[in-house]
Amino acid sequence: MVNIIIWTVAVITVLGLVLALVLYLVAEKFKVVEDPRIDEVEKAMPGANCGGCGFAGCRAFAEAAVKAPDLDNNYCPVGGNDVMARVAAILGYEVKAKAPQVAVVRCNGTCQNRPKTNDYDGVASCKVKAALYSGDTGCSYGCLGCGDCAAACQFGALSMDLETGLPVVDEAKCTACGACVKACPKHIIELRNKGPRGMREFVSCVNHDKGPVAKKACAAACIGCGICFKTCIHGAIVFENNLAYIDYAKCKLCRECEAVCPTGAIHGVNFPKPLDKDAVKARIAERKKKAAEAAAEVKPVETKEA
């Protein structure tokens, strides 16, 4: 009896020692030498592994950042300038601060604005739906409403509003990682600069149809009338394919375009006061009158000289 116990203990001990030795040797053989800075950079990262930077995860970003000669092409949108400053400090690089961005949903085709013309009966995925057809309303460009963007968001910043059928961005949670932008097959979501105190102006429509077609499909569509384009004195509005687009680099947030838009396709958010359309319109009218007067004053002079 005692013999058996002794033998068992002995065999197991020897076995354990041999296996430990094997493990040690294998670990030694396959050891990978890594730049210790990769670990440091990874620690500084947000750790969301969202892929917003274009790499597979925070570790992949760290590896790429360590290898790269500068940080120009490697930017973590989630961590923003704070994290990038830390990363730059670890690697001894310079970092260029970027303006914070936020996801913007450029479609206002709510159930009310955009009546349904047919009924979808497939898997609830925008990707599948987009491959099949243009969507269950008359608009071929707008939101499909299956919530691929909300499913793609790792930060819980996007949710589908059941009443409007459109996604809603929670600005506080949005990290501008761009996952929703990639997920949207209709390219409705755009990353835009957050703007001073979050104030920004954008066209909430991506419809390229001609006015009457767009108007028939959706009450809130950009009908390509071009009034905003003519009104804007900052040259911030790009007008192409029956659609207006506001260049945020040039926009001065004067809200004139928003006031003159006949369908309400242009949205301004986070402004302290609600837009007083009449006041703005009056201001525009005044300016135009002055401009006309100025032109009238200039003209006779020209004719005299001529």
């Binding site: 047919n118 009924d119 009966d121 898997v123 099949l132």
Partner: peptide, 8 residues
């Protein structure tokens, strides 16, 4: 009323 649309 509304046409049904679904993948095949």
């Amino acid at each position: 009323n509304k046409l049904l649309v679904s993948p095949s």
